[in-house]
């Protein structure tokens, strides 16, 4: 993309949006780590190595967490779009 064709105001907007997205991703990552730690690692620390079962659990946990994230995102967008539509119909 050629950035010189976009106005400075829009460039700033894009940058803020990108920063927000990065922050959102890191928040997602942190929440996922906490959730999967809680679900996969029993609080008995007789060993510092990850067990085989724990590793499998973590892999599945990450996959499922991101899958659910996507599903919720889709539904949320659909619902908010429906909402916006409804509001538009009410005002017109």
């Amino acid at each position: 993309m050629d950035m010189s064709q976009i106005s400075p105001a829009d460039q700033a907007k894009v940058q803020v949006m990108q920063e927000m997205e990065i922050e959102m991703m890191s928040d997602l990552y942190n929440r996922m780590t906490t959730a999967c730690h809680k679900k996969c690692i029993p609080p008995r620390y007789s060993e510092s190595e990850l067990g085989k079962g724990e590793m499998v659990c973590i892999d599945r946990c990450v996959a499922k967490y991101l899958d659910i994230h996507e599903h919720i995102g889709k539904k949320l967008t659909a619902m908010s779009m429906q909402d916006a539509e409804l509001m538009k119909n009410m005002t017109s």
Partner: peptide, 10 residues
């Protein structure tokens, strides 16, 4: 240690 290893895998 375990948490850090888990974090790495995640």
């Amino acid at each position: 240690e375990k948490y850090l290893k888990m974090n790495q895998r995640v």
